[in-house]
Amino acid sequence: MSMIQAEKLVFEYEKRDEDGNVVGTSRAIDGVDIDAREGQFVAVLGHNGSGKSTFAKHLNAILVPTDGTVWVDGRNTKEPEELWHVRQAAGMVFQNPDNQIIGTVVEEDVGFGPENLGVPTDEIWQRVEESLKAVGMISYRHHSPNKLSGGQKQRVAIAGVVAMEPKCIVLDEPTAMLDPVGRKEVLKTVQRLREEKKVTVILITHYMEEVVDADKIYVMDHGKVAMEGTPKEIFSQVEKLKEYRLDVPQVTILADELKRRGLDIPAGILQKEELADCISSMILQDNSQRTEMDG
């Protein structure tokens, strides 16, 4: 079953002059079809201004389509009466960790969503505890968010979403403002949630190494889907990715470079180990050929 489905989605901003009169429109999203099935990990890649964040905001009905349709958990985001269901079904984590934490104590922040949903008090406590455990932040439950690191803040934000028991979590560049340690923390947390809670994950990012385990990748450029496919299919097109201003991991570039220089390396290498395996198997081959010749 489709968890998220965007069909011919178009979104236009109104451009206004200094007096606030509409002087024209600008298309941020231009006929996008994106589909995520239940339990899948789908990544949307794109550089700043490619339309990927605007797309993300549609999944939570923060923005509604100018044209086309977005279904979340089978409900049309355009229908006002579906609004709260959509928002509960697709929880959202944003880029700036400081600007999405409402509570002044970690556990109170995690409780904010369930409170809004009208969950009974005892159950709120249960959910808060569970979600904080799920993101590994339970020992910080009484801390002030201001004293946490960026990665920890993002994990609290994720817990806040998890506590609403969504079927799908949308992460809009959750690591863009973090250092490498924080990035790793957040990605590990997301992976754990996928394994333990089987939630659908939509990850919006421009870091390609974050999406190597995705079930499906969409690359956006100028408001359109420029590429779609499995990580292998996408990562094998290094030149094209560079054209779309994406950050191709060094391993992939190195593999591509070696391939261009005539080595027999399969396209779309994503992991360090994969490349090392591939090259060392060549040494073995090399050696066995030599032994054959010697013999």
């Binding site: 060094q250 190195l254 470079e257 220089r261 005539g262 080595l263 060392s280 090399d286």
Partner: peptide
């Protein structure tokens, strides 16, 4: 894993050079 490469290289193209050299291949780059 036994490939005689210089481990101190820091950029992709240097690495590619090293690997090609170690594999004894003719370097096209």
């Amino acid at each position: 894993r036994g490939l005689p490469v210089d481990i101190s290289v820091t950029t992709v193209s240097e690495a590619a050079d090293e690997i090609m050299k170690a594999l004894g291949g003719k370097d096209l780059g």
